[in-house]
Design a protein around this nucleic acid. Structure first.
Length: 441
RNA sequence: GGAAGCAUGGCCGAGUGGUUGAAGGCAACAGUCUUGAAAACUGUCAUGGGGAGACCCAUCGUGAGUUCGAAUCUCACUGCUUCCUCCA
């Protein structure tokens, strides 16, 4: 969300961003609705002022006649207010629906592009492996080593379901432990946040495109049955499954006023993640690449409102992802995300992609985003700066490691001629017995 | 499962129908004093919105209601706390 004053003063720039982000929004309509809203608001406020004046007359009346006359006048004003009030509510709602759609500006270095094809590769590191034997994909490797079972996954969980088994479990948990410990070393506080949350956490972070959840466009699961109240009835409060720890981690600070000395706040969350994958039915239908649930370590930062500093922090977070990929020995590349592939709230974003031999391509394994204060306005998270002013904090987030895709990359990149898979050295301390490779039984 | 209570500014906390947007304290900021700091003293200090401004409007968990007038009364909702009971 942006400030309406800012929108008014920068209408042309925002129109440009909306166009570049492929967001269907008429800024002129918003400004017009706002004009009408303000007109009505002024009228109502004027009536309220009259009413308040009459109230004062009543309490200071010298005699009964004076009092009675004032009371009568009060009643008339009240009627006028009751006529205009519903009209105002209506236009206010219209205004809010439009406001929520307004995109954040994009950084000067963000490439302009229509869609993901406009993303710009800014770095490519590591040798992609050459194999002198027939390369298998992670599905085959997983089956051969008895560490992955997709048939049973589909049987029990349906489309995109999966079971991880045996050393596969150790490997996946090792990835999570490694990522979490890495973040603790980097000064992030670890958290296990809730994954079943109220709508506001998802609205506040921008995962709902509108004010309310829309199952047609929002890639979020709504839980069908609410919580049970004390009286045994179902709660009316809707609950949702998060697609990342980010909403839970950021909403933790919702409606709070922090002190500048507390900033930056750095948190790393480990959570299960749920994605309905709406709108990607035909995509990546095989294997672990696109699944409905997985584990992930996510990092978020809340910091003082300084664009330059936030860009530095954003870059530093990307560096951590690069370090992790390098330590795992995965060839990777970094993309600068273009306007058309950026969601409404983002100011600047990178993806990191690891090499996946079976795809003969890089596949996304992480995404680092800088939202400036766009999320903080929705979540209402402020801080008091050194001069005593209240400002919205800046919020950034980045994938530290998701569980399935790096798992794919490891199986496929480190497969050996004998069918075994070598475990990256940094993960071995989390493997039972410290094993160096997963071998066929 | 039973019973009671609470929700006020960055924090704590007073306030039970009419200049209460709200006492007091803490924190913060500015100043005096000091070589500097601390202490002490003085002052400033809720948020959002409208207006060029004087100033005006809204907000005491949320929503509705009673009233000419609500932080204060009524109802619903949400959250929290305590006690008993039960279970680990």
């Amino acid at each position: 969300m942006l400030d309406i004053k800012f929108i008014r003063e920068n209408a042309e720039a925002i129109k440009e961003v909306a166009k570049n982000k492929n967001i269907d929004l008429n800024i002129d309509e918003l400004l017009d609705v706002n004009q009408r809203r303000l007109l009505l608001l002024q009228k109502l406020e004027d009536l309220s002022a009259q009413k308040n004046a009459v109230n004062l007359l009543i309490s200071n009346a010298k005699n009964d006649a004076e009092r009675k006359a004032a009371i009568e006048r009060g009643k008339i004003i009240k009627k006028d207010i009751e006529i205009d009030e519903p009209e105002y509510q209506k236009i206010k709602e219209q205004f809010e629906v439009l406001m929520v759609k307004v995109p954040n500006l994009i950084s000067a270095d963000t490439p302009i592009g229509k869609n993901e094809e406009g993303n710009v590769e800014i770095e490519k590191t590591g040798e992609t492996p050459k194999f002198n034997f027939e390369v298998k994909d992670h599905i085959q490797i997983g089956k051969d080593l008895d560490i992955l079972d997709l048939e049973k996954g589909a049987k029990v969980a349906g489309y995109r379901g999966y079971y991880v088994k045996n050393e596969g479990v150790s490997l996946m948990m090792a990835l999570m432990m490694y990522a979490l410990n890495k973040m603790i070393e980097k000064g992030f506080s670890p958290m296990i946040p809730p994954t079943l949350v109220k709508g506001n956490a998802l609205f506040g972070t921008g995962y709902f495109k509108g004010k309310e959840y829309d199952s047609e466009v929002d890639e979020v699961y709504e839980v069908a049955s609410g919580d049970k109240e004390q009286d045994g009835k179902s709660s009316k409060e809707k609950k949702f499954l998060v697609g990342t720890a980010e909403p839970s981690l950021l909403a933790y600070f919702g409606d709070e006023v922090l002190r500048q000395e507390q900033l930056p706040i750095k948190v790393a969350g480990y959570s299960q993640c749920y994605r309905s994958e709406i709108g990607s039915y035909g995509k990546d239908t095989k294997g672990l690449y696109r699944v409905h649930e997985f584990m992930k370590v996510e990092q978020v930062v809340l910091m003082a409102a300084d664009v330059e500093e936030s860009i530095k922090m954003h870059d530093a977070m990307l560096e951590m992802s690069k370090e992790i990929h390098a330590e795992l020995g995965l060839p990777y590349r970094v993309l600068k995300i273009c306007s058309g592939d950026m969601s409404a709230g983002k100011f600047r974003a990178f993806d990191i992609e690891a090499w996946m031999p079976s795809r003969n391509a890089y596949g996304e394994t992480g995404s680092a985003s800088n939202f400036l204060d766009w999320q903080a306005r929705r979540l209402n998270v402020k801080y008091v700066d050194k001069e005593g002013n209240k400002k919205y904090v800046y919020m950034l987030n980045n994938t530290v490691l998701p569980s399935p895709r790096p798992f794919i990359a490891i199986l496929e990149n480190f497969q050996q001629a004998d069918g075994s898979v070598v475990i990256p050295e940094v993960l071995r301390k989390w493997m039972p017995g410290g094993i160096e490779k997963i071998e066929r039984k």
